[in-house]
């Protein structure tokens, strides 16, 4: 199975349900290199079409999802989406000129917080990444990182002082990732933040951040703005990684112990053949060769 055929088996977000234009306006976008049109019919029913062929749709997690496959893999479960006392916050979409896989990998990374999200999610000298655990959950076929801890000066909109924040990361499908983090206002629950990635093509993606929070104080505008601010800081990085695609050859980039989640994610992608947006061999990009592997 080639990379594109593999990618076609999944569901992808293409719109926020509340912001799909009313009939007869349509929304045009792209998915996996294919033009698609999103239409809200007169009766309110939604449809997604490519070359006049209707694709399957799914309305879940505040977004409209679609798949080019007639028999897509089931969409991943976010149980917290059923907890009605959470506030659900779709944050819009941001276009990034990078591989969809690079966007997901960056979302799984904490070591960049002091340098990219300075004084918000991290700050010097609190740069150390303590050991944490990464597993591949064979039942769910997910990458899971647990016991991740990091010092954060302002962990969320509702946080005022620095705290050690705990994280759990889940990668339930190649282009979606979810994190669970310490809720700054309550000890008994965790906030949920996700990125859903719409692959425009192998080197361009639209990223839809989504949150399910316990936050009674912040306005919707404040919560959305906070997440957009964080993601726009990441965008400056993502558009300047070379090569644009995610290299899966361990010789191409040098991970350390802090990158365990990334290492597991790359191996998991390679093993399942999820290669859309990936570089398999250094020979694909001889310029990108590096000289050693530090800590593999």
């Amino acid at each position: 199975m080639n990379a594109l055929d593999h990618a076609k088996q999944y569901w992808y977000p293409v719109a926020i349900l509340d912001s799909i234009p009313t009939y007869p306006d349509v929304k045009n976008t792209r998915l996996l290199g294919m033009d698609i049109t999103i239409t809200r019919q007169k009766d309110g029913a939604l449809s997604v079409a490519h070359n006049e062929e209707n694709w399957l749709i799914n309305e879940v997690y505040d977004h409209l999802w679609t798949s080019p496959s007639k028999t897509p893999k089931p969409i991943f479960d976010v149980p917290e989406a059923q907890e009605r006392d959470r506030r659900f916050v779709p944050c819009g979409v941001v276009r990034v000129r990078c591989s969809p896989l690079r966007a997901v990998e960056n979302f799984l990374d904490i070591a960049h917080f002091p340098f990219v999200h300075t004084d918000i999610l991290g700050s010097e000298p609190h740069t150390e990444v303590a050991p944490y655990s990464v597993d591949i959950d064979d039942d769910k076929d997910e990458v899971i990182a647990t016991k991740v801890k990091f010092f954060q000066p302002q962990a969320a909109k509702s946080a005022s002082d620095g705290i050690i924040t705990d994280y759990v990361y889940r990668v339930p499908s190649p282009m979606n990732a979810i994190l669970y983090k310490t809720c700054p206002t309550r000890d008994d629950v965790q906030d949920v933040i996700a990125i859903f990635v719409q692959p425009i093509d192998e080197e361009t993606c639209d990223v839809w951040p989504w949150m399910a929070l316990y936050d009674d104080d912040s306005t919707m505008a404040e919560m959305i703005e906070f997440q957009q601010l964080i993601f726009l800081q990441d965008r400056s990085i993502l558009e300047n990684q070379v090569p644009t695609k995610l290299p899966l050859d361990p010789k191409m980039e040098i991970p350390t112990r802090a990158d365990l989640t990334s290492i597991a994610y790359r191996r998991w992608l390679k093993r399942r053949g999820a290669l859309y947006g990936a570089l398999l061999n250094t020979t694909d990009n001889p310029k990108g060769t590096s000289n050693s592997v530090a800590a593999e």
């Binding site: 070591a111 002091p114 340098f115 010097e124 000298p125 740069t127 150390e128 990444v129 040098i254 350390t256 112990r257 802090a258 000289n291 050693s292 530090a294 800590a295």
Partner: peptide, 17 residues
Amino acid sequence: YIPAHPELEPPETIKAQ
């Protein structure tokens, strides 16, 4: 220097060209 591991000395093999 690798800030994620401030106590550790990076291997000398990590070099830019």
